[in-house]
């Protein structure tokens, strides 16, 4: 069991060590993930989660949006 686990760890460890193009690609992936995380954090709040504390309040808000068209007439 330990031997198998060791082989799996070695597969990843040696694989990462011997990467050539992969090193550059991992850098691209990491930079991209950091940028995406920052964008999500600062520009993409979950509107309903940020503005309403319960599911019922969220449902009421959406229902109000769906029936607003009737109220506007």
């Amino acid at each position: 069991m330990n031997n198998k686990l060791g082989r799996i760890i070695a597969l990843y460890r040696d694989g990462f060590k011997s990467m050539v193009v992969g090193r550059l690609l991992w850098k691209v992936i990491l930079v991209k993930l950091v940028v995406l995380y920052a964008l999500a954090k600062f520009f993409f709040p979950d509107y309903l989660r940020a503005n309403f504390s319960t599911d019922q309040a969220r449902a009421d808000h959406v229902l109000a949006a769906l029936t607003q068209a009737h109220a506007d007439r």
Binding site: I29, A40, Y47, V62
Partner: peptide, 20 residues
């Protein structure tokens, strides 16, 4: 590698721009 996670952005947009 370049394309991975680009689809996640669509999920951000759902919550912010398309909440209803």
């Amino acid at each position: 590698a370049i394309g991975v996670a680009t689809g996640i952005i669509l999920e951000f947009e759902f919550g912010t721009n398309w909440s209803n």
